[in-house]
Design a protein around this nucleic acid. Structure first.
Lengths: 212, 212, 212, 212
DNA sequence: AATGAATGAGGCTTCATTCAT
DNA sequence: GATGAATGAAGCCTCATTCAT
């Protein structure tokens, strides 16, 4: 590796580290104040750097918003994957709610998720990103649902699998809203709800009972 | 009616008409740009009036936001009521989705709904309003689910009714998000999803075990 | 008196009453908030009338300020006259301080007095008014000081009387400032100060001791 | 001095210079228009800078007003100190009057002094500042008056010294008002007044009885 | 790479005033 | 004589961004 290349690499490393610092700070601020109410000055202070410096790594605020959105999509996908990798499906969904609620400022976050979704109706770039991500998630979910039980799937016929994937997605997104509007709902009640929902969705009437 | 009284009545009429004009304009702007990104100047221009005039009818921007939020809550309640007044439950839910999506700028609106929900995690006044409304909706829903079939209800035992009310609420809110992130989803697919979901939720098998 | 004239007279009466109402309200507001910080709306509300109505009686805010200034000048002259009509000169001066301080919203008022004086350095109309009033006061004061004791005066030679009039005026105006900056000064201390001041000013060294 | 330190020092210098520029401009504007009538835009233009820039150096308008007030208090204290450091007391008081009148836009200013005093009856922060400053001035004055003649003092007994300090303060403040209301008073007349006043105040006859 | 200084557009709101009735 | 509606200018202040170093 030539010195020059090495230098470039090192610079690139640093650049990425800085970008990360900025994004983490931005995410925290956006969660706490919303995209528009959080100012660049606050983001910079949260990241422990000078506002001007941010412009070395991002062309502007909306670029940061976009990056945050993409980050969230990655998290979302990971969270879905965790869902069907889990041994206990129901518990895993309840955990998902807790994840929504407890706002690890570096993970998926419900407030951010909602604001992103609302923004999709205004910014076509964001809309496209979300749509793509949603499709990917749904495909993954459907694949899992239609896979044979031997492969860790639920053995649903493909068409139904697709439908159920939508149902699952919709319900989980609904949980995001619940986590914001009712942050102090008793976990027992929520747990009962999820259990009932999953039971009904994957039980007897012929189509393969999958509970547990 | 004395002249004075008539005058007062007319004044009141006008005041209410103006307030309405402002709220409609504000709602439009908030849908298109979000609570914080929409400025008072834009709202005024949309309402076709001078910005200062708005302050004769509202003490400030946040009062307008609050009024819009409350309006939405009223619509939400109405929409739920329509749900269980309908002869066909499934179709009614699909219509609800269309309502979410088609954004009559004077009715319930998905983007607004999401932004409200996100804002609840920051503004305690809004949070309280949403919580109260949600509780009312849920009670109404549960009452309906636990009413006897003769009374147009679903005859569920009260505990289960409550759980299912949460499920329904969550799912419908999830539909709001779907309507924003996938506004062009084929209606057939959505229809199949809702049908499946409702069938599963309200089919015979022992009424479903409320585990845990 | 013809009907017409009588009507005019009655109208004029009413007009004057309204003007008075406005001026009293304005004075109260100006004392509490200052000339510029008190708005026409507040004045109107204080007067119990509609803001627009004020413009029937005054061409604008500055006209009201001017009227208030003139009112104050009348009060000032009255207050000075009270000074040398009083049997006990010292006590009368102490009372003057209390008058400054206790802000009868319809009499002379220290805050107003200062604001007027400051305004004189900006508005030539006000400046002229104040100067004229000050001259009149001083002439009156000097006349009293140079009048023979038989006439209730102090019997000072005219030149000295003029000088002493300035001194008195200056000292009393100083009291206005003290009353604002030290509203809770012990009355005993103030009393001692005034007594000493008057004693020194009108005592032995030949020029006619006048104390008490 | 390291580069960093040097940088910091230079920055600090600049910051202070800018603050000074703002304060000088603000003082000029406040003198010319009053605290409330002078807008930030005018201050900025007078200082030759962008209005927003002011907020890098002051958190808001009232902070500037406060800074100006404190500045004036410092000047006031200096002016009093000059009074009793002077060899000729009377002349020094006359000079003080000229100082009041001639409005060096960077020194003590009568209009500002009055407006400050009036504002004290409304803003408790300003009130506290003025009271503290007045007390300090009075203590200093009293100390001087009660010091022995050998120490350059007037040798008054402490109690009387305190009373006379109030008298002097009051009279000098009265001069401030005179300087505004009668800026073109003949200096001879004023000089005679001050001379007479001082002579009377500090002439022999038994030191004056402190009645009551 | 990083900083503090600077800017101009725009944020929300209040003002004194005029208009129509 | 009196009112509520309406207006445009101006109020203070914050924002995202760029500049010079």
């Amino acid at each position: 590796m030539s010195q020059r290349t090495e230098g470039a690499a090192r610079r690139s490393e640093r650049a990425q580290a800085q970008s990360e610092r900025i994004l983490r700070a931005a995410q925290k601020c956006f969660i706490e104040h919303g995209f528009h109410a959080a100012g660049m000055a606050l983001v910079a202070k949260t990241a422990g750097m000078n506002p001007s410096l941010i412009y070395r790594y991002f062309p502007g605020k909306s670029a940061i918003i976009l990056a945050i959105v993409e980050r969230q999509l990655v998290h979302a996908r990971a969270s879905i994957r965790a869902l069907h990798d889990a041994s206990d499906f129901k518990e895993s969904m309840i955990e998902a709610f807790c994840l929504w609620r407890d706002a690890d400022p570096d993970m998926m976050n419900a407030a951010l998720f909602l604001e992103m979704s609302a923004e999709a109706s205004r910014d076509p770039v964001i809309a496209a990103g979300l749509r793509a991500s949603d499709q990917a998630i749904r495909d993954e979910l459907a694949a899992w649902l239609s896979a044979s039980a031997a492969d860790g799937g639920k053995g649903l016929p493909p068409e139904l699998a697709r439908i159920r994937a939508i149902t699952l997605q919709t319900f989980m997104e609904g949980l995001a809203i619940r986590s914001l509007r009712e942050p102090d709902i008793p976990l027992a009640e929520l747990s009962a709800t999820v259990t009932d929902f999953v039971d009904r969705l994957f039980s007897n009437p012929g189509l393969g009972s999958v509970t547990q």
